[in-house]
């Protein structure tokens, strides 16, 4: 192992955990790596000065209240699913809804009187225009009302 191989593995030696014996052996014989490890240890020790504050005394009380809410919310939302009668009723309603939807979607559209009347008027108007055009082409008198 050379110094480059060892550098990133120095992390193993920063704590008391298990370390690669090859890394340990190299550091014990290499002054540059020993110095590197020493300066990393000093940096780590410097970080000890940053202490964290004490938790608020209400932290656990607040958490317990939140957990209680969760516990109460869960049966309210999904508890009914555990009741067989309600679940069976829901399944029936869903199945009936599905069948109804299918029948509705495949049935012919209902006959709408007003729409049929408008379509008929449009057809008649097109026919009159066509007749006028034929009359004009053949020289026959137009059906249009003459202007005074």
């Amino acid at each position: 192992m050379n110094c480059n191989d060892v550098r990133e593995n120095l992390i193993e030696l920063l704590t008391d955990g298990p370390a690669d014996p090859q890394v340990k052996a190299h550091v014990s014989q290499c002054s540059a790596c020993t110095e590197e490890l020493g300066s990393l240890r000093k940096t780590m020790a410097l970080l000890d000065e940053w202490e964290s504050p004490e938790p608020s005394p209400y932290f656990l009380t607040r958490l317990r209240a939140h957990v209680k809410e969760e516990r109460q919310k869960a049966p309210a939302m999904f508890g009914w699913l555990r009741r067989p009668l309600l679940a069976a009723a829901l399944a029936t309603v869903l199945a009936a809804g599905g069948v109804g939807y299918r029948i509705f979607m495949t049935a012919p559209p209902p006959d709408n009187g007003a729409v049929a009347d408008i379509e008929s008027l449009d057809k008649n108007h097109d026919l009159i225009i066509d007749t006028d055009l034929v009359n004009e082409l053949t020289g026959a008198p137009s059906d249009d009302v003459a202007e005074p």
Binding site: E8, L10, I11, S39, L40, K42, T43, M44, L46, L47
Partner: peptide
């Protein structure tokens, strides 16, 4: 694990460099 060692080493190197006046 090797990526984590590398990540930690880089972080401590940066901190060592930036905090060297206090070490």
């Amino acid at each position: 694990e090797s990526a984590t060692k590398s990540l930690l080493f880089r972080a401590y190197e940066v901190l060592r460099d930036r905090l060297k006046e206090f070490v």
